[in-house]
Computed example of a mutant assay.
Amino acid sequence: MNIISLVVWTLEKNCFTVYTALIVCFVGFTIFHKNKLEAHYRSAEKKEKLARTAAVRKERDFRDDSDEDPELLVPAIPEDTPHIVYQPPRRTDDEVLRRSREYYELMAQRRTVRTFSAEPIPQDVLDNLIKTAGTSPSGAHTEPWTFVVVQDPKTKEAIRNIVEEEEELNYSKRMSRQWVTDLKPFSTKPVKPYLTDAPALVLVFRQAYSWRPDGKKRMHYYSEISTAIAAGFLLAAIQVR
């Protein structure tokens, strides 16, 4: 009897056992893959739930102590604050064109310079520059900025020392070689003598939050963007002199 005949004879004599074994294997295979699929779906559902939770948390980036108790929610600006109706001036097309061209030509003269006159700046001028920067828009009108005018020589010297120390690290370690290379045409260096030469420095600080009269934290929204826009207003005001 050859091997094939032996196999056929064995299957014929033990067909019940063979079929039973096949059924058991099929059932086991089905259960195994069923569990694998359920585990896959559970994992996918968990990831989707985490993604939804992260999205909700992202929407609540500006969470503060008042979120848990609605009674503590107080607007940054009192609800009874009177609104001033905006009434833009009416101008002819020719006048609008002329004004826009003049302003462009004025701003196109702006330069980023590192040499300044030591001639004193009238205090009223400095005040007006800061007030102009303060007219900048901000998230929920929270005005998340602080402008500090420094004129004291010792304070300017201390600021220069701090800036030069940080700039030395920037040029030697933090900035990429390409960045440093791109700055070569401008002849910039870590040394910043203009910080003590200039008659006044305006330091711009961003406020991530402030404090309400009741001692609770008042959140500031889009504080980085708002402060950057205010700094732009300041630069434009300085150019319009």
Rank of each mutant, 00 (worst) to 15 (best):
M1A: 10
I4V: 14
L6E: 11
L6Q: 13
W9D: 15
K13H: 14
T20D: 12
T20Q: 12
I23K: 15
F26H: 11
G28S: 03
F29A: 15
I31D: 11
K34D: 15
Y41S: 08
Y41R: 10
R42S: 07
E45F: 09
E45Y: 10
K49I: 08
R52V: 03
R52P: 01
T53K: 07
A54L: 09
E59S: 12
R60H: 14
R63A: 10
D64K: 03
D65Y: 11
S66I: 02
D69P: 01
E71P: 02
E71H: 02
L73Q: 07
L73A: 08
P82N: 03
I84L: 11
Y86I: 05
Y86D: 05
R90M: 13
R90E: 15
R91F: 04
D94F: 10
L106M: 05
R110N: 05
R110P: 03
R111S: 07
V113F: 08
A118R: 13
A118G: 12
V125K: 06
D127W: 07
L129C: 02
I130W: 00
T132N: 08
G134V: 05
G134S: 10
T135Y: 12
P137E: 02
A140K: 02
P153T: 00
T155Y: 12
I159F: 04
R160M: 12
N161D: 10
E164V: 06
E167I: 06
E167Y: 14
R174M: 06
R174D: 09
S176G: 13
R177A: 13
V180M: 02
D182W: 04
K184D: 05
S187V: 13
K189Q: 13
K189M: 12
K192W: 07
K192D: 11
P193D: 02
P193R: 01
R206Y: 11
R212Q: 09
H220E: 00
Y221H: 08
Y222V: 14
E224P: 02
E224R: 06
I225N: 10
A231D: 11
A237K: 06
A237I: 10
